[in-house]
Write a protein that binds this DNA or RNA. Structure first.
Lengths: 110, 110
DNA sequence: TAATCATTTCGTATGTTTACGACATAATAC
DNA sequence: GTATTATGTCGTAAACATACGAAATGATTA
């Protein structure tokens, strides 16, 4: 009974939640930050940056890719990862919407 | 072996991840959106908005509170929830930092 | 005081996440 | 062709998340 009743919520809420979930682990935050900083694509050097086994890093990379936040392309025997701008911008839009709501919201009266 | 090696990452990365985790379920997105829209505090009416048992909604509310995104205060036998502006702003700051990095980042060369 | 109502906590079943070593795969290098 | 290197997938153990009904708590109301 844990298949989180996602179908009961709007597509937008589900999309936002999926992206937030992708960022819900510090290792994945670190990966995204690194890719944003380095800009140019990086492969398994990411694993060197993190205190995790390569298999684990690979797993985190797959999750970020599935969420549409990063993309990877094969370059010889290496894989070159970078930010997926389309997905990343979608994430920022979700937050802009949040921010807009926050501006309109009254202060808490509790 | 799943105590997610959080201690290996910076405090900022951990804080961001904690808040993202709080938003990683559509029900919690819906709750935050609702509180932002309604502005004035709401209690178990939130449960009526969601297709979930009250116990489950309560659990989600505790998680959002623990993450510092909302706050609740007792008003008679009801509990009045609203956005925790301090925590919410912290979340927005994390995203602003992300956005700033994104602006400086080169395009993907992959 | 007892009944009622709003909310949370408890117990629990089940699915998901995290982590790792070991194995598989696929591309260069020798 | 074989070795080396980079990456991903598999199997697995332990922890965590999600959901709910039932019981507990605490405040009004009768």
């Amino acid at each position: 009974m844990t298949f989180s009743k996602t179908e009961a919520f709007t597509e937008k809420q589900q999309a936002f939640a999926r992206m937030a979930k992708a960022l819900s682990h510090p290792a994945r935050i670190a990966i995204v930050e690194h890719l944003l900083k380095v800009g140019t694509c990086i492969s398994g050097d990411i694993a060197l940056e993190l205190p995790l086994a390569r298999a684990t890093v690979s797993q985190h990379l797959q999750e970020l890719k599935a969420a549409g936040l990063i993309q990877g392309s094969i370059d010889g025997q290496k894989v070159c990862y970078c930010i997926n701008n389309e997905g990343f911008n979608e994430l920022l839009e979700h937050f802009t919407a949040f921010k807009t709501l926050a501006y309109q919201s009254q202060n808490c009266i509790c």
